[in-house]
Simulated scan of single mutants.
Amino acid sequence: MEHKSIAQVKELFETSEITEEMLNTLSSDKRKGVQQLVRTYLKKQRARQEAEKMFVSMTRYEQSGYAQNYELIAGVDEAGRGPLAGPVVAAAVILPSDFKLIGLTDSKLLKHSERVTFYKQIKQRAISYGISLVSNEKIDELNILQATKHAMYHALKQLHPQPDYVLLDAIQLEKLQYPSKSIIKGDQKSISIAAASILAKVTRDQLMNKIGKEYPQYQFSSNMGYGTKQHIDMLKKHGATPYHRRSFAPVRDAVSRSLGGD
Score class of each variant (00 low, 15 high):
residue 136 N to D: 14
residue 187 D to T: 13
residue 231 H to P: 08
residue 116 V to N: 01
residue 237 K to V: 01
residue 92 A to Y: 15
residue 106 D to Y: 06
residue 7 A to V: 07
residue 255 V to R: 01
residue 18 I to G: 03
residue 147 A to T: 04
residue 120 K to D: 14
residue 170 A to P: 05
residue 187 D to A: 06
residue 137 E to C: 05
residue 156 L to T: 09
residue 261 G to F: 13
residue 196 A to Y: 07
residue 67 A to D: 11
residue 15 T to S: 09
residue 118 F to D: 08
residue 29 D to E: 14
residue 162 Q to I: 00
residue 190 S to C: 15
residue 124 Q to G: 04
residue 216 P to F: 01
residue 206 Q to P: 00
residue 186 G to H: 09
residue 77 D to G: 05
residue 73 I to P: 14
residue 205 D to P: 12
residue 192 S to E: 10
residue 235 L to P: 04
residue 17 E to K: 13
residue 34 V to P: 04
residue 31 R to G: 15
residue 153 Y to W: 12
residue 222 S to G: 00
residue 143 N to K: 00
residue 171 I to N: 00
residue 229 K to V: 15
residue 142 L to W: 06
residue 139 I to K: 07
residue 24 N to K: 15
residue 3 H to E: 13
residue 223 N to D: 12
residue 123 K to V: 08
residue 205 D to T: 01
residue 88 V to N: 02
residue 210 K to E: 15
residue 239 G to A: 05
residue 21 E to L: 04
residue 250 P to N: 11
residue 59 T to K: 13
residue 38 V to H: 10
residue 112 H to G: 07
residue 197 S to C: 06
residue 4 K to M: 15
residue 116 V to C: 08
residue 72 L to A: 07
residue 50 E to G: 02
residue 102 I to L: 14
residue 8 Q to R: 12
residue 61 Y to R: 10
residue 45 Q to T: 03
residue 6 I to W: 02
residue 37 L to T: 12
residue 181 K to W: 02
residue 144 I to A: 10
residue 230 Q to F: 15
residue 114 E to V: 11
residue 195 A to M: 06
residue 108 K to A: 01
residue 137 E to A: 14
residue 160 H to L: 00
residue 225 G to F: 07
residue 28 S to T: 04
residue 20 E to N: 11
residue 223 N to L: 09
residue 122 I to Y: 14
residue 177 Q to H: 13
residue 127 I to D: 02
residue 21 E to H: 09
residue 137 E to I: 08
residue 94 I to E: 12
residue 70 Y to E: 03
residue 67 A to T: 05
residue 212 G to S: 06
residue 79 A to C: 14
residue 9 V to M: 00
residue 204 R to N: 03
residue 120 K to C: 01
residue 254 A to V: 03
residue 113 S to Y: 02
residue 228 T to A: 10
residue 83 P to Q: 14
residue 205 D to K: 02
residue 260 G to C: 05
residue 125 R to H: 15
residue 169 D to T: 04
residue 188 Q to V: 05
residue 97 S to T: 07
